[in-house]
Simulated assay, not measured.
Amino acid sequence: MAALWISHINVTNPDQFAKYVELAGPAIRKHGGEFLARGARFVQLEGNKRERNVVVRFESIEAAEACYNSPEYQEAVSHARGASERDLMVIEVTEP
């Protein structure tokens, strides 16, 4: 079953975070991720607002987890740590 990787981000160090962005895209695509939204316009209706939101579709939760745990993505995310405040989750898509 397909899954969505959803992250909500506040960037605290744009220069350092830029390296994450540079490396994360190729790492995510290498593992089958398809970007559905990446920093696009949004409206916050409830909850805590984050300035940047990303949604990526994977073939399964397991594929998303494998991407997250991959050496390529871990290299990328090492640049986000200390350069951003992030919440990241993966949720299965329930399709009728």
Results as ranks from 00 to 15, higher is better:
residue 91 I to H: 09
residue 86 R to H: 12
residue 74 Q to H: 03
residue 82 G to M: 05
residue 5 W to Y: 10
residue 26 P to A: 04
residue 17 F to V: 08
residue 89 M to K: 08
residue 58 F to I: 06
residue 7 S to N: 08
residue 3 A to K: 00
residue 22 E to N: 05
residue 3 A to N: 04
residue 59 E to D: 14
residue 54 V to S: 01
residue 44 Q to L: 14
residue 11 V to D: 02
residue 52 R to D: 11
residue 90 V to D: 05
residue 9 I to W: 00
residue 75 E to V: 10
residue 90 V to G: 03
residue 55 V to S: 02
residue 23 L to H: 00
residue 77 V to K: 03
residue 89 M to A: 09
residue 22 E to I: 03
residue 70 S to D: 09
residue 10 N to M: 04
residue 31 H to A: 01
residue 44 Q to G: 06
residue 90 V to H: 05
residue 10 N to E: 05
residue 49 K to Y: 13
residue 92 E to V: 04
residue 76 A to K: 00
residue 13 N to W: 01
residue 59 E to P: 15
residue 93 V to Q: 15
residue 66 A to R: 15
residue 75 E to P: 14
residue 31 H to K: 02
residue 4 L to H: 12
residue 65 E to Y: 09
residue 84 S to F: 00
residue 13 N to T: 04
residue 48 N to R: 13
residue 25 G to I: 11
residue 19 K to L: 11
residue 79 H to T: 12
residue 48 N to G: 06
residue 4 L to I: 13
residue 76 A to C: 07
residue 61 I to K: 08
residue 9 I to N: 01
residue 84 S to L: 04
residue 88 L to M: 09
residue 4 L to E: 13
residue 22 E to T: 07
residue 54 V to I: 07
residue 42 F to P: 06
residue 41 R to S: 13
residue 19 K to E: 12
residue 45 L to G: 08
residue 67 C to M: 11
residue 90 V to I: 14
residue 88 L to T: 13
residue 68 Y to Q: 15
residue 85 E to M: 13
residue 52 R to T: 09
residue 71 P to L: 06
residue 49 K to W: 13
residue 26 P to R: 03
residue 76 A to V: 04
residue 38 R to C: 15
residue 51 E to T: 08
residue 10 N to G: 01
residue 49 K to M: 09
residue 11 V to K: 01
residue 48 N to S: 11
residue 14 P to H: 04
residue 76 A to W: 00
residue 31 H to G: 01
residue 85 E to Q: 09
residue 36 L to M: 15
residue 22 E to F: 01
residue 13 N to V: 09
residue 29 R to W: 07
residue 64 A to K: 00
residue 28 I to M: 06
residue 74 Q to T: 05
